[in-house]
């Protein structure tokens, strides 16, 4: 019984640690929801625009960055950093702009029609933003 309670406790902790992440854009951007592959292409610098043609400005955030890329690409952040080092320092393209947390991402999204970022899904409700994809 003691082990069962401990197991439930650890499960709850793990569930809380791996948050659902919402990929969001400006509410005026008429882009329909994206596929996982499209989100990957945009955040890995392979696609510079939304499928609807709108130029995409990508935003990272330090709070969720590790979890976001782990869930999106199944790779640890060190591999993502090495990938971006290749693209960035060879002058091919620039990585997403780094912000700090959900609130700074929401603010940037609301100010730019072409902005795309990610936040904790629980902070996505009641906001003037459009959800494009949920990472589970």
């Amino acid at each position: 019984m003691k082990n069962f309670i401990l197991g439930c406790f650890l499960f709850c902790l793990a569930s809380q640690a791996i948050a659902e992440i919402a990929v969001i854009t400006n509410v005026q951007n008429n882009q329909v929801p994206l596929t996982r592959l499209q989100v990957q292409d945009i955040f890995m610098g392979r696609m510079r625009a939304f499928p609807n043609g709108q130029f995409a400005t990508t935003y990272d955030q330090t709070t969720l960055r590790d979890d976001f890329y782990q869930q999106l690409t199944q790779r640890p952040i060190a591999q993502i950093n090495a990938y971006w080092a290749r693209l960035m320092f060879s002058g091919q393209t620039s990585p997403p702009i780094k912000l700090t947390d959900d609130q700074s991402v929401i603010k940037a999204i609301q100010e730019n029609i072409g902005a795309i970022g990610y936040i904790n899904k629980k902070n996505a409700s009641h906001q003037a933003i459009r959800i494009l994809f949920i990472l589970k």
Binding site: N81, A82, Y83, A85, R86, F89, S90, G91, Q92
Partner: peptide, 19 residues
């Protein structure tokens, strides 16, 4: 001025962290 792009890793040879 740009990196000489001859081979697969030519233009990021200096970025040892990337390989």
């Amino acid at each position: 001025r740009m990196g000489t792009d001859v081979f697969l890793a030519s233009d990021y040879r200096n970025i040892s962290y990337a390989y």
